[in-house]
Amino acid sequence: MADRADHTPTSPLITPEPPPGPPEPGASTRPRPLFVYGALCAPALLAWALTGRAGPLCALARTRARAHGLARFSLRGRDYPAAVRREGEAGGEKPWVDGYLVAAATAGQRRILDAFEGAVGGRPSRVAVTLLEGGGSGAVVDADAHLWEGDDAALTGEPWDPEVFVRERVGVWLCAIRALGLMEEEEAAEAESEERTGV
């Protein structure tokens, strides 16, 4: 992606959404889980999006998961990917996308995640994801994911690699967040080190 300067991260704009109306009678107050497959797979960015700090995610349930019937592609001029529905293998694509199932503790946390993810993927779509770790490993869970609703010409056709994102771009995002005064310099450096070492 040589058309983008290394010092300029591309991130979706987070805009507040109006509060939702009252829940329907008998409806669960816990938000539906959200499957994330891009920038929010980086723990420091997920923690920052939800708490304003790149610290531990102790208050958030995050589980490795796989969504079948999706393909993840790089977007032209962007650091983050887009996922589209695809059945079967075509052109070397895997017929699934690995990511994380995030169980937001509150409707407010879910709105923040939707604002972050929705800037790229539009409205949440229902997906079935298979848990890849923990006591529920192998279980299939009904979740939401923000899938690409834009012009297919914006998709590069190249798979998006989360390891490359962590290695080459997370530090840039954390520096930009720090430069905007949204994170302390020491915290950004510590978070970047943890992302790179997997600590």
Rank of each mutant, 00 (worst) to 15 (best):
G77W: 12
G77I: 13
R78Y: 12
Y80D: 12
P81N: 05
P81Y: 01
P81R: 01
E87K: 04
G88R: 14
G88M: 12
G88L: 14
E89Q: 10
E89V: 04
A90H: 15
A90R: 13
E93T: 15
P95M: 03
P95T: 00
G99E: 00
G99C: 00
G99L: 00
Y100C: 09
V102Y: 10
V102W: 06
V102R: 03
A105Q: 07
A105H: 03
T106V: 07
A107Y: 00
A107R: 13
Q109L: 04
R110H: 14
R110D: 13
R111L: 14
R111V: 06
I112K: 13
I112Y: 01
D114I: 02
A115T: 04
A115S: 12
F116I: 08
E117Y: 06
E117T: 05
V120Q: 04
R123L: 09
R123M: 03
S125N: 11
R126S: 08
R126A: 11
V127Y: 01
V127E: 01
A128L: 14
T130N: 01
T130E: 15
L132A: 08
E133S: 13
E133D: 15
G134N: 06
G135A: 13
G135C: 08
G136T: 09
G136L: 08
S137W: 03
S137I: 11
G138E: 10
G138I: 10
V141T: 15
A143I: 02
A143S: 13
A143V: 02
D144C: 09
D144P: 01
A145Q: 06
H146Y: 08
H146W: 07
L147K: 11
L147P: 04
W148F: 15
E149R: 10
G150D: 10
D151P: 06
D151C: 10
D152M: 06
D152V: 09
D152K: 11
D152A: 15
A153C: 10
A153T: 15
A153R: 15
L155H: 05
L155R: 07
T156N: 13
T156P: 12
G157T: 06
G157Y: 11
G157S: 12
E158H: 12
E158C: 07
E158N: 09
P159E: 05
P159Y: 00
W160T: 00
E163Y: 11
E163G: 12
E163F: 04
V164R: 14
V164Q: 07
V164A: 15
F165L: 11
F165C: 09
V166I: 15
V166Q: 03
V166D: 02
V166G: 00
E168L: 10
E168R: 11
R169C: 05
R169E: 08
V170D: 10
G171D: 08
V172N: 05
A176Q: 10
R178W: 02
A179H: 13
A179W: 04
G181Q: 08
M183D: 07
E184N: 09
E186I: 02
E186Q: 07
E187I: 08
E190L: 07
